[in-house]
Design a binder for these strands. Structure first.
Lengths: 335, 335
DNA sequence: AACCGGATTGGCAGCGCTGCCAAAAGTCGC
DNA sequence: GCGACTTTTGGCAGCGCTGCCAATCCGGTT
């Protein structure tokens, strides 16, 4: 890889063709291993590529290629602050990298307008697929996605109608299962502690499922605390303290997720409240950390990595599909 | 945005020009707000764009534009499982999105060969910049980056020589400061508990700094436990138990990061060991969760978001730069 | 020796856009 | 109302690659 090119101009396929003494099309065929070429041609091209340090220009390649869609996947997630989404990304990148597909990502901060802007920006790279989070989008987002002529996969949530493919689990069902678990254990004065529901629509669906299961048992929430801002252990800790001050007779708390629940657990440790004797705690997500606690957290484990993998697998498919990957209730020792 | 296009063919700039009754160059000028055009032309183009639902093709745009480098940033991080990297990404995407730069990411799994392959793949999109993690790379990776004619920013670590720009902090200094803190508090029988050092070179640098500070005080590590696999609270918990079984007389443990330390703290809670009276714990990273613990963890907070932001800011710069953003030692209550 | 079918090859248009240039349309002062 | 400007505009080459087509090569047949 000697650099005898005039700096400023990168090595092109034409340069390689000249160096190898073959035509451009032959170089293209060899590089993509597509069409037939002789062994000798293959060797000469490989040698020239190595010698010149050629890196193909995929912008040009995708533009020229038919369908003109790039080996790119456009991904929009609402946040990177919650472990869920990095996990999702992990599943996605692992599966996509294996197929030589690159990931272009955007973070919407739970803002549908930003999501729409990001979708437009991502579509301008003519990705082969668009991976969104959740089922609720601006009408404009949906129109863009439809018009973009790309495969659309909506991840995490299956409670509702999708644009194209949907991979996830039912958040309502998670909420209902969590409520039934608490009810079965005899808890009756149950509060909810969560972060902003306007923003996290899937947390709102879980709560709706939770409340309707309570209602089936003739009960209602015994208090609720909604903290502004993102979920975090600190927020969960402060939230539980506020909740207990208002409703000292609570016997269980359902948290919007494990981060909040962990904060609640810390609050109990600090206040010397026995868990679950005095107060039961129930989370959501099934983080690793929840399992390492002195008392493993009672929670619901979601198949985050698997959602990413399956979503990646969906790209090659066609037509509407819904894949419900379910969830696993972990009994733990806090409820 | 009515869809009277023949499906299969996306709207092009030429379509917009025809619909607006102007030339292609005028459309291009209006869309990029570059060069001069009349108010009337602007309106007609805007109307046609909205009516046709035109999404520019940036593949073509970047290919045609001079310099031919795309408004893309190629990012390679070693992992998504550790909070550090999502945080870093968060800083990056926030800053880059504001400038209309999209992020293409790759995850190397701490494997230099995968990193090299990813760099090659990313360069094929002709990004404006390449953002790597750490300073240690394959020779091939460095050659590719150099030949690619892109701005290269290496993040997180400043202990060594960079290719181009470097943004981070000194991991050695973090280790040394941590050691000095423990020494100043009177701890003398100090062990190290970490995950795989072959793989996480920055953790190895912290340990080196830690040990050299111990050596200055005439001390050496009083035991060390290296867990295979990634860092996690579960691993930290099991590791601490193993460590204590071998060295029951330990008075402090330095962990490779907060995840491990949290697991260690849980182990102490479970075993009824007083922290820090019987055993002091010291972490690294300064996670939110560490601050929400009943006893805030003693640790070092790293400027992860800020590294992302500064790295993004570096892209517009030129020439070698090193930005050391330092770190903050948090006294906490566990050491 | 002429012929045939398949494997291999090179030339070239064109993907959708931008940069450049020259032409056209305004603008102003006198 | 006319020249000397400035602003606005459209045409077109070309970015680096791929797909298509026709040309060439090769080995075996007749």
């Amino acid at each position: 890889m000697d650099a005898f090119q005039p700096p400023g101009r990168l090595v092109t396929l034409t340069d390689v063709a000249r160096a190898a003494g073959v035509g451009e099309s032959t170089v293209s065929r060899v590089l993509r291993n597509h069409g037939s070429y002789s062994k000798r041609a293959g060797e000469r091209v490989a040698e020239a590529v190595a010698r010149l340090g050629y890196v193909p220009n995929r912008l040009a390649g995708s533009l020229a290629g038919q369908g003109a869609s790039a080996q790119l996947a456009g991904i929009v997630i609402p946040s990177l602050a919650n472990v869920v989404f990095p996990d999702l990304l992990r599943g996605l990148t692992t599966a996509l990298d294996a197929e030589g597909v690159q990931c272009v990502i955007g973070v919407s901060d739970y803002d549908p307008d930003r999501e729409e802007a990001l979708v437009a920006a991502l579509l301008s790279w003519r990705p082969a697929a668009l991976l969104l989070t959740g089922l609720e989008h601006n009408p404009g987002t949906i129109a863009l996605a439809r018009a973009g002529g790309v495969r659309v996969v909506e991840m995490i949530d299956t409670d509702g109608a999708g644009i194209d493919a949907v991979v996830g689990f039912s958040n309502r069902a998670v909420g209902a299962a969590s409520a039934r678990h608490l009810l079965a254990r005899g808890y009756r004065r149950i509060a909810y502690l969560g972060h902003d529901l306007q923003v996290d629509l899937r947390a709102a669906k879980r709560l709706a499922g939770f409340e309707s299961a309570l209602a089936e048992a003739g009960l209602a929430l015994h208090g609720r605390e909604i903290r502004s801002g993102p979920s975090s252990p600190a927020s969960g800790r402060a939230g539980l303290e506020a909740l207990l001050a208002r409703h000292p007779d609570l016997d269980a708390v359902y948290f919007s997720n494990d981060d909040m629940a962990l904060g609640g657990y810390f609050a109990c440790l600090s206040a010397g409240l026995a868990v679950p004797g005095r107060l039961a705690l129930f989370g959501f997500n099934g983080l690793d950390i929840a399992a390492a606690m002195p008392q493993p957290l009672s929670t619901v484990r979601t198949p985050r990595l698997e959602i990413g993998r399956q979503a990646a697998a969906c790209l090659s498919g066609e037509g509407p599909t819904t894949i419900d990957l379910g969830f696993e209730l972990i009994e733990g020792a806090t409820a």
